[in-house]
Amino acid sequence: MRKKEIFIFILVFLFLSLVGIIILDIEIEMKESTNYSTYNNGKNGTRVLYRLAKEMGFKVGRYEKSARFLPDGVTMVAISPRINIINGSLERKYLLDWIERGNTLILIGSKELLIGNNYKILEGQEEYAKVFSYFGDNRMYNMGNGKVIYLDNYRRYTNDSIKNLDPGVAFIHALQVSSNEMILFNEFYHGLGREMPLLDVIGFTGRIILAQLMLAIIIYIFIKSRRFGKPAVVYKIIKREENENLYALSNIYMKAKANSMVLEIVYEKFKNELAGFLGYKGREINYDEVFNEAQKNPLFKGMNIKELAGNCEQYIKNNINDKRKMESLYIKLEEIRRVIRR
């Protein structure tokens, strides 16, 4: 039965691993096939910009969450963002707040002149400066303490088109003007990533509370599963010999009140095992001598065998009816028996 359970466990583990690999493979394939994504190595991908920024000495990364969670002190690059995502009311609010706090957005958008109609973040922004005029209708808007650098015609910045050099030069100039060492390429605006990650929503304090709750649950489950005298349960009852014996003793005590007799049986078995372990044979064994010899043996150091034997004999002789004391004596006898069985 044990082999069957191990086999089932291995099958479940392999199945879950296979599912995880398939899901990961699908996710990677989706990222690599998304147009204007920095994961994409194809003609319509923009991985070349990611590599270019890295080669120029900037610290680069990808960002796959809402603007609500953007860190400060970074420049974010958004290449041909999906209009329905970047123009969402909440997303627009969080993005504008982030820019006005002193951060920079490099927005590589369409070539149409109606910029404010296409990207609501720039709606009503009449004042701007022409930048990198040698290549395209590129603009810089000051917004609060931050700025938006707008580069027109995102099709010029793909892996296939940027070999013309001019768009690459304009992009590097934009990074330099942004004055931030850390550059994040936004993939959330391509439909990748998650809008509201749970750990980000609950914040640092919430994570600590969640970790404490999980730890408390684990400890509670561990304590409940390790109650002394009760067998552990995994797929079936796993019998631990000493616990099963004590559990049986407890039942006998509850039903027959005969614990002194039970202890006597266990004690006699203990004496025989100890005598045999120390090399005493025959019917006429002087157990006082056995206990004295055991007391000197370093294997039983600190176990006070003579005192334990005296307590057991007194309990049996006086027919004491004390469950806790009987269990205490039994546990000590079992500790010595475990040393003998090694």
Rank of each mutant, 00 (worst) to 15 (best):
A256I: 06
I340M: 04
Q125A: 15
G88M: 02
R139K: 13
N311R: 15
V60H: 01
G57L: 04
L165M: 13
P71R: 02
E55A: 14
H173F: 11
I252A: 11
K323H: 11
L11S: 12
K236N: 13
I218D: 03
G57D: 04
I316A: 02
N164K: 10
A275I: 08
K325T: 05
R156N: 15
D137R: 12
K325A: 03
I85D: 04
E264W: 00
E100R: 11
A78H: 00
R68I: 04
L333H: 05
G20S: 12
I149H: 08
G191K: 06
Q212F: 12
L333C: 05
I23F: 07
L95P: 05
F13I: 11
E242D: 12
L274T: 10
I121N: 09
L18R: 09
K230N: 06
K281F: 07
S178N: 04
A216R: 02
F7R: 15
N118C: 00
Q176E: 12
I183T: 06
K281E: 13
V233L: 15
G42E: 12
F135L: 05
R227Q: 14
F7V: 13
G282Q: 01
E27F: 04
N153T: 08
D152G: 07
N35W: 03
K3V: 15
I8H: 13
H190Y: 01
D322A: 06
M261L: 12
Y157V: 10
F222C: 13
G116M: 07
M196L: 11
L184C: 01
E289I: 13
L274K: 02
L113C: 09
E244N: 02
N159F: 02
F188R: 08
N159W: 01
G193M: 07
E241S: 06
R227A: 08
V19F: 05
V77M: 00
F135R: 08
L329E: 08
R341I: 07
I28D: 06
G88H: 02
L299K: 11
G136P: 08
P197T: 00
F222M: 10
L165F: 08
E264H: 04
I320H: 01
E273P: 00
K301F: 03
I23C: 08
M254L: 14
L333V: 05
N44P: 01
P167Y: 00
T104D: 09
Y141A: 09
K111F: 10
G61M: 08
I305E: 01
H190E: 01
R338P: 03
T158V: 05
T75E: 00
G168Y: 01
I208D: 00
G45W: 01
Y50Q: 01
N304A: 15
G73Y: 00
M303S: 09
N318S: 10
K93Y: 10
G73K: 01
K332W: 05
I237M: 09
S66E: 06
S110C: 07
G229W: 00
N153D: 15
D97A: 06
Q295S: 15
G73E: 01
N117Q: 12
N40Y: 00
I238H: 08
P298S: 03
L299S: 13
V148S: 09
V201W: 03
Q314A: 15
I221E: 11
V48E: 14
G124R: 03
Y267I: 04
E29G: 06
E195R: 11
